[in-house]
Design a binder for these strands. Structure first.
Lengths: 142, 142
DNA sequence: GCGAAAGATAGGATATAATCCTATTTAGGA
DNA sequence: TCCTAAATAGGATTATATCCTATCTTTCGC
């Protein structure tokens, strides 16, 4: 928590009671809770905290790299008819998703650490980054 | 498309005009469209098709393994305060997500195929499967 | 081919998740 | 302590996904 306070100060972000409790709650669990769950739990300590504050803070923490989103950020359901082996590149800026194949990664086996958690069915790599187009827009602005 | 018709027959699923067009649309693109996009495009050929039909069919196709969902199925946003290197196990049944680490996968490099698409920032493996608890529930029922 | 039954669809109604708006409060620097 | 910019609460709103049910279509046995 001390490191978190410091991270806020470093970024010029105010250290509010709500923000501390939201982060504390998230950092204290490994279950990757959703917003409602975080809100419910934090409310036990701050009864008046609003859902909006929880949303706002979590989103802000993601943007500052202090927290990550599992899966994709606030996107809609998206589908893929390619059932062959492939991986995904996801642009964190515009949401573009492209498949790619990689001979190196064709034969990755189910890691035994994952097998301890359950019976694996599918496996693929998710590479997040900034796509070429968003990158060029960025360059032309600077 | 012929294979798709056959796959429907094999599964005892009726081959409807709407279903064919929805699948055709999805299979004709690599951009992983969302439901609204699929609906809009299919509507050019079937003007009266409803969003519900698109949702219902895509969901059904996922359940039959003919299509996959990018990211996670109809889940809420979920967050993770663990910013260290780790991978995810996602239960496709109950939505449980657990982190795991794997020495084998600690040093996976950004595949060059992904670098062609953009500038990668993070990388992790996503293993989907059925978690131990869901598995045991399943066993006790049969 | 024909008719019945199960399955699928359209379209409106509804539920749920996420975000917006704005008056008020709070943190942090001078 | 005071001031300013940032943050919050709470209600309103939007957007996404699903439900409901009357109607229609596919499929299968004849």
């Amino acid at each position: 928590m001390h490191a978190f306070r410091q991270a806020c100060v470093d970024r010029g972000v105010k250290v509010t009671h709500q923000r501390l409790e939201i982060f504390r709650e998230l950092a204290s669990t490994e279950e990757h809770p959703d917003v409602e769950t975080v809100h419910r739990r934090v409310r036990e300590r701050i009864p008046t905290i609003s859902p909006d504050t929880v949303y706002r803070n979590l989103k802000m923490l993601v943007e500052h790299g202090l927290v990550s989103v599992v899966g994709m950020s606030h996107e809609r359901l998206r589908f893929d008819a390619n059932m062959g082996p492939h991986h995904h590149f996801v642009c964190v800026r515009c949401g573009l998703i492209r498949d790619f194949r990689s001979p190196h990664l064709e034969n990755v086996e189910f890691p035994e650490e994952a097998e301890a958690l359950g019976e694996p069915v599918s496996l693929h790599l998710e590479v997040k980054g900034v796509c070429a187009q968003c990158r060029s827009v960025e360059d032309s602005r600077s």
